[in-house]
Design a protein around this nucleic acid. Sequence first.
DNA 1: CCCCCAATGATTATGATAATCAATTCCTTG
DNA 2: CAAGGAATTGATTATCATAATCATTGGGGG
Lengths: 162, 162
Amino acid sequence: MNLQSVAVSQSPEDKFREYLTTGNKPQRFTGQQRDMVRFIFSHHDHFDAEALISEMQAANLKISRATAYRTLNKLVDAGLLRRLELGPRTFYEHDYGYPQHDHLQCTKCGKVIEFQNPSIEEAIRQASLANGFQSEGHSFVVRGVCKECNIALMPKRQLDLI
Amino acid sequence: MNLQSVAVSQSPEDKFREYLTTGNKPQRFTGQQRDMVRFIFSHHDHFDAEALISEMQAANLKISRATAYRTLNKLVDAGLLRRLELGPRTFYEHDYGYPQHDHLQCTKCGKVIEFQNPSIEEAIRQASLANGFQSEGHSFVVRGVCKECNIALMPKRQLDLI
DNA sequence: CCCCCAATGATTATGATAATCAATTCCTTG
DNA sequence: CAAGGAATTGATTATCATAATCATTGGGGG
Ligand SMILES: [Mn+2]
Ligand SMILES: [Mn+2]
Ligand SMILES: [Zn+2]
Ligand SMILES: [Zn+2]
């Protein structure tokens, strides 16, 4: 189940357009970029570049690998997406309009579970204060085995006890 | 400053030898592996494969890239080293004989600062309990700007106020 | 309606790590 | 102590994700 979204004043599409067109160097907001933003923000999930490309092509949306990688980087710079360190490849998820949270990742099936805990922000505050550190963001992933995989891995006689 | 080490009954070298020779498939504990373990555990540090190779070669220790990568993986499996997610490449640090802790990483100079906070373990316990999740380990890195880089980046007039 | 400049995308490059495999080393056994 | 055999080594090659290249396309301001 997804977390509750955060109220925002602009649509992701408008925010990205603003990011691109505001500033010293003019950047264009193209049809492919618009398709990417709309597709990505049509549902919340954790995805990598390859998955995005195949899903968009399956949805009959034209996108090349180069443009996908380039636009993902721009979306991160614009504050729309957040990068996730979930293994060797880079994953992405919504940042704009989605609350701060962290992740449990199952090492058996790969599933990613979201959770929130205010004491994490507090721990960051304390450690930063103690070290004169100016915190800008964090990555927190707990690895382990999810409920379903735990049940599947249990010997039969242990299941009987439940 | 490093954290206080944890008392252990075996030297890293002995523990690795035991890991290699115990079990169904016999694995040899070679001179190069012994050199690597001794070198790595002669000082606490956060390093990647390339840095290890150059430092060992600078210390006149023979090591090939292939053997370095292979042995690093074995050291992680043996519980001697822990992998760190500090960006695109893989970093390593002592696990055996070193206490649980997490990291602040400076995005300006790359410096890595260690800190401990028991509320992080508690947050993991709570999130795991709430999701039926069996936790096995975690990665927690706070990105930001360290004290020295903060001072260096400050405009002169702000420095004057200190 | 042009023209310029940014975007696109096929292709090539990069860089870290893993696989290959012939040569070497080193335990085991007789 | 010699020989056999299995595991390790290391030069080389492969892989895989992502980043650059650069010729072509196209869109928006004048
Ligand atoms: Mn998430
Ligand atoms: Mn550390
Ligand atoms: Zn699972
Ligand atoms: Zn710094």
